[in-house]
Computed example of a mutant assay.
Amino acid sequence: MDIYGYIKKDHRRFEDLMEQVEKARTTAKRLDIFRTLKAELIIHAKAEEQSLYAAMEKATRSKAVEKKLDHTTEEHDEIEGFLKQISSASPSSDQWMIHFGELKHACAHHFEEEEGTLFEKAKSYFDAAQARQLARDMDALKREMMADA
């Protein structure tokens, strides 16, 4: 699997977890699924920045691509901010669900941008073997971070 398929697989998992949060029948179940989502989103973002984003920064000489990478990193920070807001709200409150809706919207926007323009640019930098290696690198980073967590 290449880096693009690897990241898309993560994105689809996050979408599924968000749907499960929304459909959870109890606050305890909602919170349990949210904790999984939160941990996995944070690890995904850090590993992505250290693998794909770092490789793209190294490969590019384009200011536009550097700005795009800065933008996607800012989106990661925004998503982490929503995760913190949700974590500090009462899980049974309307505010919790409002913040969760904001998180879901931010993630959908980020996934769409990343899978579109960012992946297209990355494909111009990396051949198939490099894209597969980036997936292995990201997977190894995620496993290491999960072990440390």
Results as ranks from 00 to 15, higher is better:
Leu41Met: 11
Lys58Asp: 15
Met18Gln: 07
Ala47Glu: 06
Ser93Tyr: 02
Ala55Gln: 09
Ile86Cys: 00
Tyr6Met: 11
Ile79Tyr: 00
Glu48Gln: 12
Arg30Val: 03
His99Lys: 04
Phe82Asp: 01
Thr73Ala: 10
Ala24Gln: 04
Glu74Asp: 10
Asp148Met: 12
His99Glu: 10
Glu114His: 06
Lys46Val: 13
Arg13Met: 05
Ala106His: 03
Ala28Asp: 08
Gly81Leu: 00
Lys63Val: 09
Asp137Pro: 04
Met146Gly: 04
Val21Asn: 00
Lys123Tyr: 06
Ser124Trp: 03
Glu49His: 05
Lys123Val: 05
Glu113Ala: 12
Glu112Val: 14
Glu48Asp: 07
Asp94Val: 11
Phe100Lys: 02
Leu41Thr: 03
His105Lys: 13
Ala147Ser: 08
Phe111Asn: 12
His11Phe: 07
Ala106Trp: 01
Ala64Ser: 14
Phe111Gln: 09
Ile98Asn: 15
Gln95Val: 13
Leu118Glu: 15
Glu40Met: 03
Gly81His: 01
Thr26Ala: 09
Met145His: 02
Ser51Gln: 03
Thr60Asn: 13
His44Trp: 01
Asp127His: 14
Gly5Asp: 09
Glu75Gln: 14
Ala28Phe: 07
Lys58Trp: 14
Gln133Met: 11
His71Trp: 06
Arg35Lys: 08
Lys104His: 12
Ile79Arg: 00
Lys38Arg: 15
Thr117Asn: 13
Ala135Pro: 04
Leu37Asp: 03
Lys121Arg: 00
Ala64Asn: 09
Thr73His: 10
Tyr4Thr: 10
Leu52Asp: 06
Asp77Cys: 04
Met146Thr: 11
Ile43Pro: 00
Lys38Val: 08
Leu31Ala: 12
Thr26Asp: 09
Thr117Ala: 14
Ile33Val: 15
Leu103Val: 06
Trp96Asp: 02
Ser124Tyr: 02
Tyr4Asp: 08
Lys84Leu: 14
Gln95Phe: 08
His71Cys: 11
